[in-house]
Computed example of a mutant assay.
Amino acid sequence: MTRIANTPEPPYYAVIFTSLRTAEDNGYGLMAERMTELAAQQPGFLGMESAREALGVTVSYWDSLEAIQRWKQQVEHREAQRLGRSEWYAAYRVRVARVERDYGFGE
């Protein structure tokens, strides 16, 4: 089911991961599912949103920069990062931002 992440009142942090995929799957789908499950178990995780067309965009939300750093260093996540560089991505960019305002409509 597609949902908008239910984040708390700001401030909090967003990690914005944009990517261009290679042509081969090579286990990408399974690893993406595992990373979603694993991220949700990490202390400080607040939610995630993802969309993939020609350009993939995944935004994960965190309560602190320390939580983001712990996630970056998590063992299984480090392996996914390695495989991303060697197998799955032609290019990617990671941006970390502090969310100051959050408003919307619906849900």
Rank of each mutant, 00 (worst) to 15 (best):
R98C: 08
A67Y: 06
L30P: 12
F17R: 01
S60G: 01
G27N: 09
E53L: 15
P10N: 15
R70C: 08
N26F: 09
A67Q: 11
E66C: 03
D25N: 09
T22P: 05
E87M: 11
A23K: 13
W62V: 00
E33H: 07
E66T: 12
Y12W: 03
G106M: 13
V96A: 04
S50Y: 05
F45G: 01
D25I: 03
Y92V: 03
R85S: 03
V57M: 14
L20W: 04
G104A: 07
R34K: 15
A97L: 05
A23S: 11
E49F: 04
Q42E: 12
L83W: 10
V94R: 05
I68C: 01
R21T: 04
P43N: 14
D102P: 04
I68K: 00
A97V: 05
A51D: 12
R52I: 08
A14Y: 00
N26E: 15
V75T: 11
S19I: 02
L65H: 04
K72F: 10
P8D: 13
P8M: 10
F105L: 14
Y12E: 02
L20Q: 08
H77M: 00
H77Q: 01
E87F: 10
R78A: 09
V15F: 04
A51L: 10
G106I: 13
R95Y: 09
F17C: 00
T7N: 10
Q74M: 05
A23H: 11
G106P: 11
R78Q: 14
R93H: 12
H77C: 00
L20P: 02
T58K: 01
R82D: 15
S60P: 02
A32V: 10
V15P: 00
G27Q: 10
R93W: 13
W71V: 00
L55T: 07
L55M: 06
N6Q: 14
W88F: 10
E76N: 06
I68L: 00
D102V: 05
H77P: 02
A67I: 11
P11G: 03
S64R: 14
A67L: 06
E9T: 11
R101K: 08
E87V: 08
G84Y: 02
